[in-house]
Design a protein around this nucleic acid. Structure first.
Length: 444
RNA sequence: GGAGUGGUAGCUCAAUUGGUUAGAGCAUCUCACUGUCACUGAGAAGGUUGCGGGUUCGAGUCCCGUCCAUUCCGCCA
């Protein structure tokens, strides 16, 4: 018999079906027993009693929680059950027995017995079984699909920039070195140089979704050594504001998709209202933002950048003033930005770039890039970067390259903010951090 | 890399100023129960208090070292 998904049982009342799934709960009542089974589509109560088959009843009673079962039975109306129907078991086979007790508690609504995060990550495959995490993975999928769809609808091409590269793409200090046959190579910190190569290759509009690697010993709730970067680059722009606008529309479109599909579930499970903003996200220059922060008495550590405290505060202020959860901050000092950002022609000390903040956290850095070969070389030189180390990159601009700009979003951070979770460790399938590689390291 | 907090049963947490047999809830196991639905009731088992050293008549508790976790900062997406 073919498997019927649990969500389809309601359309099979009176029929004999086969379900496959995991044992969620067993309630042993002596001569009658209930087994709640779940699959990816939902939960169903299965019932066995002594009058039918003592053998089946005993099997139901003795099956450990979280075992994998294969059950045939009749779907029967049952007014006592919330769902209105249940499955009367005719046959049960245990495909895989789960040891018990489990090393962690699977998070559920009615229990505040939630295992510590690092324990949950050690047993991530069990942790992910929770209703909450299952929904999170669905939302993550929908979120990335929403961003991707928007790019595709706008005539973008998808590229896969190499993850193993011969020279560091950003500063060079925080790269992972790997052995590449008899020479050194590096894990890409960003697809930045290669998506710019696509501009010189006349692909005009590209996006790249994939892992990037940062050898930074950051111990925060928003940093990973490996994370997924959703990168976008677009040519023939007149201003970085076009990049901002594109990103804004992309995020709005994604939020709309996610809300349509999972808005209700997100509200029920995470207690978060997904808000699709109307109109444009507000802009503040760095100077304006600093003035607002000063007027609220928020201490400023550095002139051209925010501390995390300032990020949280400026988002709150913006939310109060405009009602918008998002904020573009522009006019950063060029010295605080990457060398490839274009400088403002009217004020060489400013970069033509932006950061996008959402609910108190930076989710994006974007900019118009410097596409003029000679100026780019000068800017690199001014930073003390050797022309030799950037040779391959600089060549992309030597044979003609259109004006362009782009941005990158850390998807783990985006999901963290979307579901208002506390840490990117929670929103990553299997997070790598300085002290955690795969399951665990450095532990006794 | 810096600062703070923590590590006690499978999990989540208690344990008074340093005091005698380290407790509870959940999970597990046994028994009872033919309609449970966070099942219920009775019982059982479960501990080198992260590790190493020290102070003390006595250490889960105080001190030193160490490992791990976590939060914040720095760095960033």
């Amino acid at each position: 018999m073919e498997r019927t998904l649990i969500a389809d049982l309601k359309n099979n009342i009176g029929k004999e079906v086969r379900i496959r799934g995991r044992v969620d709960t067993v309630r042993d009542q002596g001569k009658i027993a209930f087994m709640i089974v779940r699959d990816r589509t939902g939960y169903v109560q299965c019932v066995a009693w002594i009058g039918n088959s003592e053998e089946i009843l005993n099997k139901v009673k003795s099956t450990t929680l979280e075992s994998i079962v294969d059950i045939t039975g009749t779907v029967k109306e049952a007014k006592q059950v919330a769902a209105g129907y249940e499955l009367e078991i005719l046959g049960i086979n245990v495909d895989s027995v789960s040891a018990s007790p489990l090393p962690i508690v699977i998070e559920e609504e009615h229990s505040d017995n939630v295992s510590a995060l690092d324990m949950r990550l050690d047993y991530r495959w069990i942790d992910l079984r929770s209703k909450k995490n299952n929904l999170m993975m669905s939302v993550a999928t929908s979120m990335t699909a929403g961003l991707r769809d928007f790019c595709l609808r706008n005539d973008f091409k998808e590229i896969q920039a190499p993850r193993i590269i011969s020279a560091a793409s950003e500063s060079g200090a925080n790269v992972f070195e790997v052995k590449y046959f008899d020479r050194k190579a590096y894990l890409a910190q960003s697809p930045q140089f290669h998506k710019q190569m696509a501009m010189a290759a006349d692909l005009e509009r590209v996006f790249n979704v994939g892992p990037v690697f940062r050898a930074e010993k950051s111990f925060t709730t928003r940093h990973l050594t490996e994370y997924t970067s959703f990168d976008v680059e677009m040519a023939y722009i007149d201003s970085y504001k076009e990049v901002c606008h594109f990103e804004q529309e992309m995020i709005k479109s994604m939020l709309k998709d996610v809300k349509e599909k999972y808005g209700e579930d997100i509200k029920n499970v995470f207690g978060v209202e997904v808000i699709v903003p109307d109109g444009d996200f507000p802009y503040l220059t760095m100077k304006e933002a600093k003035e607002k922060l000063a007027s609220k008495g928020v201490p400023s550590k550095e002139e051209g950048d925010f501390s995390p405290e300032e990020e949280r505060a400026i988002c709150e202020i913006t939310k109060e003033e405009t009602g918008c959860e998002f904020l573009f901050v522009i006019d950063y000092p060029y010295k605080n930005r990457a060398f490839y950002h274009m400088r403002n022609n009217e004020n060489k000390d400013l970069a033509l770039g932006y950061d996008l903040f959402w609910k108190g956290v930076e989710i994006t850095t974007g900019a118009q890039r410097e596409h003029r070969y000679e100026i780019l070389k000068e800017n690199a030189k001014e930073r003390g970067l050797s022309e030799e180390s950037l040779k391959d990159y600089l060549e992309y601009f030597k044979y003609g390259c259109p004006p362009h700009g782009g941005f990158a979003i850390g998807t783990e951070r985006l999901l963290m903010k979307l579901l208002e979770l506390n840490s990117v460790l929670e929103t990553t399938y299997l997070p790598n951090t300085p002290n955690r590689l795969g399951k665990l390291i450095n532990k006794n």
